[in-house]
């Protein structure tokens, strides 16, 4: 009689339940109408089942986004757990859509679901990938732009994890600044 070890049939629980959202740029509809919840998951196996099932970012149309956020946090500045926060923002050039976009996004998801930022992981709200003609963007959103230590930990570990060259600078912007920016660029509160 063969008894399977629990490791073979028990799913591996994640620290958090996560929700994956998809934003499709349909100008005829309002912004929030274009934001769709795809699915939620709280195990490693269910994460992969979802990830393997959906399109890679590089295959999405311009103006589309994926957002992965902790369950209960909406992927928008206005959410109570986002409004005091900000984001580490990585802007990619056009060539990087082919070479880096998809693998950077997967690595970002692995950092989130795997809680790769030690205690600072508690400050993470979610991550967003924006597919845009002028250059795609990947960002990690945190809950409080004043938590400098946690934010710097996240930025440094994330940069190391993606193997981004030292000279390539990653900037952190508060949502407040981003939402009220006058010029085209938003000032960075922190950088790594």
């Amino acid at each position: 009689q063969v008894v399977a070890s629990p490791d073979q049939y028990v799913k591996h629980p994640l620290q958090n339940r996560w929700a994956l959202w998809y934003f499709k740029n349909d100008k005829s509809k309002g912004w929030t109408e274009n934001l769709r919840l795809i699915s939620k998951f709280d195990t490693v196996e269910d994460f992969w089942a979802l990830y393997n099932h959906i399109q890679q970012p590089s295959k999405l149309g311009f103006g589309c986004d994926y957002c992965l956020f902790k369950d209960g946090i909406k992927p928008m500045w206005e959410d109570d757990r986002n409004k005091l926060g900000g984001r580490w923002l990585m802007t990619l050039n056009k060539q990087q859509r082919h070479n880096d976009l998809d693998r950077f996004w997967m690595e970002t998801l692995l950092c989130l679901v795997g809680e790769s930022f030690d205690e600072a992981s508690d400050d993470v709200c979610g991550a967003v990938v924006n597919v845009r003609p002028k250059g795609d963007k990947i960002s990690i959103w945190t809950s409080n732009c004043q938590n400098r230590d946690a934010i710097m930990t996240i930025g440094q570990l994330y940069k190391d994890r993606l193997n981004i060259p030292i000279k390539a600078m990653l900037g952190y912007q508060s949502h407040d600044d981003t939402s009220s920016k006058s010029g085209s660029t938003t000032k960075n509160m922190y950088s790594v």
Binding site: H12, P13, L14, Q15, V44, E45, W48, N52, E107, L110, V113, G114, E115, S116, D118, E119, S121, R161
Partner: peptide
């Protein structure tokens, strides 16, 4: 409290296991 952490190697192994 405790934190459930998975490193990238483990996560990638889970992806490929049946």
């Amino acid at each position: 409290g405790t934190r459930i952490i998975y490193d990238r190697k483990f996560l990638l192994e889970c992806r490929s296991s049946p």
